[in-house]
Design a protein around this nucleic acid. Structure first.
Length: 487
DNA sequence: AAAAAAC
């Protein structure tokens, strides 16, 4: 809950009487103080609905997109309920985990934890976050010292369960955030195992952006007599977001992105790709063009992921090239624009991706590149969002392939020389065949009017590059996480 | 077809 919160002083006087305030919920002075610290006074619609219901101890099935203030909607009343039954013993053993919040991605867990810590800072309650890809020891130490609230991704949580560094036998409240995403990611067995470790008598809160049959089934099996909370029609795109669609050729996409970034002078933008390798490649390409870009995806080490996100938030990185790891949940304020380098495979992912902009009533642009192959994806998106998206030509855009080779060679001379030592042929690993050379840094000039045969050859070379040698792929992806550790 | 998540 940061950017979606309206300014405390912005409510017109004539509205103030009708408008609910956080003071109206009977939250403790310590919680209200934390809210004041952050300058929050008025609840968002989801908060106004969720807080009283959660305070009553009821189960909740909430349909809410990120950016609606959902996190505060469940964490404020949870903190209140835990305070109401405070445990004053100094012994860590007397501080069993009392509330567990599960999220699908590590970044989301981290972000939720930051919010929970902020809201509980004056209460004496302690919260910690637990996720994979980082050293376990500090997490074990935090858990041992005694925490009432744990925010976790499922895999690492079960890891802690296995080595007995966490005890869930006293956990009275369970939150499943982004439940639809967790199902998509195959977390159902893990969720089942975790739930089996909890007391039967507990409060369950489930949040999901969509209400698929699978989600309803999950709700039916895990929730008891839940109150349904819905703030906006699900699958709807925000009216604040202007959707723009440019039709380009596949091999023109990189140039088109660079062109769009330059033309619009974009300083805070996420570019989504469908693949991890695609994210890495595009970010390397943009950096070569002088763009402050970084990639974030699941094959990056956790420290690289965190660095990229922090650098992006503080402005050192202006273009975050991301896979769908960043499509949901991430709360980055003031994002005026989101770009789809690839149209996503699932229409729902499109909604989540463009939901990263146009938050808190601000205007935003969602720019997508599409190729003629994307007809089906586009039709699915238009069906889901109930809107027609007009295809436009990217005015003024000249792809690099349209610039005569000799001219490009002159422009790129320095770059090409510096790359030459990395040339696969110089290492003999690719043999001498020109078709197998990665066209990334040696792009043969192909006239736009090339005959069909030449086009096929170009495609073959593009295909070869989409399956680089494992070593090169690993270097690109920066997959520290995948490196074997001792033993 | 892809991505994410434990070691």
């Amino acid at each position: 809950m940061t950017d979606q919160q309206s300014s405390p002083l912005s409510a017109p006087a004539d509205m103030a009487a009708a408008r609910q305030r956080f003071d109206d919920f009977g939250l403790s002075p310590e919680i209200l103080r934390a809210l004041r610290d952050q300058g929050y006074e008025y609840p968002t619609p989801i908060q106004a609905q969720a807080i009283p219901v959660v305070l009553q101890g009821r189960d909740v099935m909430g349909a809410a997109q990120t950016g609606t203030g959902k996190t505060a909607g469940f964490s404020l009343p949870i903190i209140q309920r835990l305070m109401a039954h405070a445990n004053t013993s100094a012994s860590p053993a007397r501080h069993p985990v009392r509330a567990l919040i599960l999220t699908p991605t590590r970044e989301l867990a981290d972000q939720v934890a930051e919010n929970v810590k902020a809201y509980s800072r004056h209460t004496g309650l302690r919260a910690t976050v637990v996720f994979g890809g980082v050293d376990m020891a500090p997490q074990v130490a935090a858990l041992r010292s005694g925490v009432e609230i744990v925010i976790a991704t499922p895999g690492r949580l079960l890891d802690h369960v296995a080595q007995k560094s966490i005890n869930l036998s006293q956990t009275q409240i369970l939150v499943m955030d982004e439940a639809d995403r967790m199902l998509d990611m195959g977390f159902l067995p893990d969720l089942q195992r975790i739930i089996n470790l909890l007391p039967r008598q507990r409060q369950n809160l489930m949040f999901s952006a969509t209400f698929s049959p699978e989600i309803k089934k999950l709700a039916a099996s895990f929730l008891s007599n839940p109150q349904t909370i819905e703030v906006a029609r699900s699958n709807a795109t925000s009216d604040n977001v202007t959707q723009i669609l440019y039709e380009v050729k596949e091999d023109e996409k990189r140039d088109a992105i660079a062109f769009i970034l330059r033309e619009r002078g974009l300083k805070q933008v996420i570019v989504f790709t469908n693949t991890k390798i695609g994210a890495s490649r595009l970010s390397v390409h943009l950096v070569k063009q002088g763009v402050k870009a970084a990639a974030i995806h699941g094959d990056k080490s956790q420290s690289e992921r965190m660095t990229a996100l922090e650098d992006f938030k503080r402005g050192a990185v202006e273009v975050l090239v991301a896979t769908d790891v960043a499509a949901r949940g991430l709360d980055i304020s003031e994002m005026p624009c989101v770009i789809n380098y690839d149209l996503p495979f699932n229409a729902e992912d499109y909604v989540h991706r463009i939901g990263r902009t146009g938050r808190a009533g601000a205007k935003g642009d969602a720019i997508s590149l599409c190729t003629p192959q994307d007809d089906k994806a586009l039709a699915d998106i238009e069906k889901l969002t109930g809107r027609k998206i007009v295809r436009l030509q990217l005015a003024g855009f000249v792809p690099a392939s349209a610039v005569p080779y000799r001219e490009r060679e002159r422009e790129n001379r320095y770059e090409q020389r510096s790359e030459r030592s990395e040339h696969p042929r110089s290492r003999g690993s690719y043999g001498g065949s020109r078709e197998k050379v990665d066209p990334w840094f040696l792009r043969p000039y192909t006239p736009n009017t090339a005959p069909a045969g030449a086009r096929t050859e170009k495609q073959a070379s593009a295909n070869a590059s989409s399956a680089p040698k494992p070593q090169k792929r690993a270097a690109l992806l920066g997959g520290l996480r995948k490196m074997p550790t001792a033993g």
